[in-house]
């Protein structure tokens, strides 16, 4: 337990070290989620449009 507290304390540099890693996590996480959302949205929209077109011209 003491070790864990020491780990998070980072020898007094906790604010700087964890801010750096937190910031990197947010930015890198966004770069995975943003394309995922965009791809899902496009797939749904295009599938819907194709289904509509197929219904109109059998």
């Amino acid at each position: 337990m003491n070790n864990l507290a020491e780990f998070f304390h980072m020898g007094g540099y906790a604010l700087y070290v964890w801010s750096a890693y937190g910031l990197a996590t947010v930015v890198l996480g966004y770069n995975i989620l943003a394309p995922l959302w965009r791809l899902r949205g496009l797939q749904r929209r295009l599938a819907l449009r194709h289904a509509k077109n197929n219904g109109a011209t059998p």
Binding site: Y13, Y16, V17, A20
Partner: peptide, 11 residues
């Protein structure tokens, strides 16, 4: 630099 240098692993 103590523990502050650990930023190097992402920087």
């Amino acid at each position: 630099q103590g523990d502050s240098y650990r930023i190097i692993f992402i920087h």
